[in-house]
Nucleic acid binder design. Structure first.
Lengths: 252, 252
DNA sequence: CAGTGGTCTAGACCACCAA
DNA sequence: TGGTGGTCTAGACCACTGC
């Protein structure tokens, strides 16, 4: 028995576990509306705030979502698999495919595209790009939306001096994306590092991704190095942690 | 101005942001005790439950920790950098510059070591290991503790038929670990896949890792394939999401 | 023992949604 | 307009810490 009789769990955790079991058993289908929190609170015999605590926990896991003035709903979204290491990376650069569409996941819509030139970079970006004091960057930012749900924000930082007056500063950088353009400039990326951490979203990130404040996000910082070992681009991605499975495949 | 006058944020978020700024400014050093939540609530002019909401948010980020009956403390732990792709497998790539600071793999203490033979595997494990109906696995589980703080749980699943009566079923599998023993058996791992997702810890995981219920965990499932493409081991890791930076480096 | 964090309650007000 | 989730309050009881 793994019932843990001695260490009685608090009510909100027991209710959360019970709700989780009910949802995984399939009593409610994806997208279905749950009873209101007052109804549920009465059913479970607890105060509504306690009920909210349990529901909020399930929401932070991505199992349910809430709409103000409307109700609680079973989350219907299927996670996206992102392949961090493209299978045949280099061959795809000239082929018109972007890094993203090389992944085996659903094609996203891209919106909130913005290119800003001559920006002052954050300190940790400037350090990795080895910029001189006061040197500027070009920032390409965008949002990815899958099946109507915003799932990722991304911001690419490139040295302004490197990309000025090239297609990289255009909203559409042309076939092969910015890596193909960097190759045109003699700075083809040959090596990448992806650093991953989990954070609480900033207020702006929570808004743009329509996330509850207690949902965590996955931060992936991808640094591209050219043949001389110079960092030529940093792509900082911010993903809804409930929407993604990251995937890395490599040899021994 | 990015003050967001129109969309007034709730008090607990504004207070959390203010506290975050105070902590990052360094008013309190690592390990320092903060004023009690009642004192803080009075200072900020809110009810203590509202104050708790703000503190709990910072705790879920790993910025502060609480000890029942004692107080709130500034978290002193420096994140660990885990290299998903072993150094030996990487060429002599220079440039140590990284986006986020974290210490490289401090040597952990390993405790709660357990080897269980003849176990029935979870369904998703059996599927990847391509086990026949009813076929058993050997489960090697352990906990990693760094500087007195439990940071990761790991459980390796191997086909029982493959490892029976080998050193792999011993608590100490000998020099080179279980991969060397798999090589001895003619099943040296030559390819790996790591799948990463973020979850809320189970009650058992929260207990074994001493995590607050609202702290998320990083799940890494590492599958090892031998030369014939057979999955010979799955290592399911569960990490405190505030304790780790994952790092993958690879060529184009 | 006093003080602390953890849980829980009852009730209030607001913004938002749907009929 | 009534119901819903989101926020906030005041206060209670408990378990634990540390003197």
């Amino acid at each position: 028995m793994s019932r843990e009789l001695g260490t009685a769990q608090p009510k909100y955790l027991r209710i959360a576990a019970e709700l989780r079991a009910i949802l995984e058993r399939g009593d409610y289908g994806p997208g279905d509306r749950l009873p209101g929190e007052n109804t549920l609170a009465a059913d479970f015999g607890v105060a509504s705030l306690t009920m909210r605590q349990a529901l909020a926990l399930l929401r932070s896991e991505g199992l349910v979502g809430s709409r103000k003035g409307s109700g609680w709903y079973v989350e219907a979204f299927r996670p996206i698999r992102r392949h961090g290491i493209p299978r045949v990376a280099r061959a795809q650069w000239g082929s018109g495919k972007t890094i993203w569409s090389a992944d085996d996941d659903r094609a996203p819509d891209v919106d909130q595209v913005n290119v800003a030139e001559g920006e002052t970079p954050p300190q940790h970006i400037a350090a990795v790009l080895e910029l001189a004091e006061g040197e500027a960057v070009c920032i390409r930012s965008r949002r990815y939306v899958v099946e109507g749900r915003p799932v990722m924000l991304a911001a690419s930082y490139l040295p302004q001096a490197l990309v000025a007056d090239t297609a990289i500063t255009e909203a559409n950088p042309g076939p092969g994306g910015i890596y193909a353009r960097l190759a045109d400039l003699g700075h083809a990326p040959v090596r990448f590092r992806e650093e991953i951490r989990v954070r609480v979203p900033s207020a702006e990130e929570a808004t743009r991704l329509s996330l509850p404040a207690d949902r965590s996000v996955i931060k992936v910082a991808r640094t591209a190095f050219d043949g001389e070992g110079r960092a030529v681009e940093i792509n900082e991605m911010t993903m809804d942690s409930a929407a993604y499975v990251l995937d890395y495949e490599f040899g021994a």
